[in-house]
């Protein structure tokens, strides 16, 4: 059963070792993605969602480190692998696209050559068939005149085209898992819609699993099968998309949902979550959200709630009294 899962993360913890102490950016997170599934992580900046992506990809830089738990890609344990072993998996079995495509493309190499690199390296293809494969992939992601774009440099492309190139590059070795970290945040809304639709159709066609990280609930709602809500390094709620948007139980999830502006009505004020994100070095003794939570009780400030299953597949980290009524 477990072997059907593309990605299985169990009790993952990772953080930064700084002069002021250990910053627990990801704390005991478990998450799984089935074949062809699109799974979303939603949360605000600093909640640890990007740290999960980096932990999976083995891209944590000093002073960041994985401190516990396991990450299995198609049954294969990734934690404890050497850089060399990870290198062989990155780009082949899993690939990542970032918010700002310009920073992850080499500015002095034509994009076609950059894409070909992975095929030469991982698939041991010869140059001619690799080029043919690249052209096919460029066309697949909706880039017109792929032959002309093959020799183009990154700066000659617009933001939307660059993100398409990044996706094509990530897809070139047909990875089992695509991690998309805020893939459309830097893009305009009309281009964002194009890119999201592209990622979804690629996943449907190839059975590729997607881990989508976003702060935008609209993007999450349009894309994901299962959604994990993160706050201060912990999963606070997880459910399938329909359940989460209709029957969320955690007050933080509710706060996020309420902050989404409805285009049809025109309220005088927006419901806002008061206060600020807690400092991870000095987390409150009880629930991390309790200082901002409108429903917090004494118990919330003293005791840390565990993730509890409310319904099959619907988990929530909140004491029963605090939950939204379902």
């Amino acid at each position: 059963m477990d072997n059907d899962l593309t990605l299985k993360i169990e009790h993952l913890s990772s953080g930064f070792f700084t002069e002021r102490g250990y910053v627990p950016a990801v704390d005991d997170v478990s998450l799984s993605i089935g074949k062809g599934q699109v799974v979303g992580i939603v949360g605000e900046s600093g909640c640890g969602k990007s740290m999960i992506a980096r932990s999976v990809m083995g891209l944590l830089k000093y002073p960041g480190r994985i401190t516990g738990g396991s990450i299995k890609l198609a049954g294969q344990e990734l934690t404890g692998m050497s850089d060399g072993q990870l290198q062989r998996i990155r780009g082949k079995d899993m690939a990542m696209i970032f918010q700002e495509p310009m920073t992850s493309l080499n500015p002095v190499v034509p994009i076609g050559k950059q894409m070909r690199e992975a095929l030469l390296l991982h698939e041991k293809m010869d140059k001619i068939s690799a080029k043919a494969e690249v052209l096919k992939m460029l066309e697949h992601v909706g880039i017109s005149e792929p032959k002309k774009r093959y020799g183009a440099y990154p700066h000659e492309l617009s933001g939307g085209l660059r993100q398409r190139v990044m996706i094509a590059m990530a897809m070139i070795c047909k990875p089992k898992l695509l991690i998309a970290d805020e893939p459309t945040t830097a893009l305009d809304v009309t281009i964002e819609a194009q890119i999201l639709r592209l990622i979804r159709s690629l996943s449907r066609e190839t059975g590729m699993s997607v881990l989508l990280i976003s702060h935008n609930l609209g993007v999450i709602a349009q894309m994901c099968d299962t959604v994990y809500v993160m706050y201060a390094g912990k999963i606070v709620e997880q459910a399938d998309a329909y359940t989460l948007f209709d029957r969320h139980a955690h007050p933080y999830t509710k706060g996020l949902m309420d902050s989404v502006i409805d285009l049809k009505s025109n309220p005088r004020r927006l419901p806002a979550i008061g206060g600020v994100v807690p400092n991870l070095l000095h987390l409150p003794a009880g629930c991390a959200f309790s200082p901002r939570c409108p429903r917090a009780m004494d118990r919330c400030r003293e005791e840390r709630p565990e993730l509890e299953e409310l319904a099959p597949g619907h988990l929530c980290r909140c004491f029963e009294e605090g939950r939204e009524r379902l």
């Binding site: 700084t18 002069e19 910053v23 900046s45 600093g46 918010q99 700002e100 991870l280």
Partner: peptide
């Protein structure tokens, strides 16, 4: 730059 927000975020977290 905005790409720095990740590290910026950490900096403000630990009060650098």
């Amino acid at each position: 730059s905005k790409q720095d927000v990740f590290s910026e975020d950490l900096a403000s977290q630990i009060g650098e």
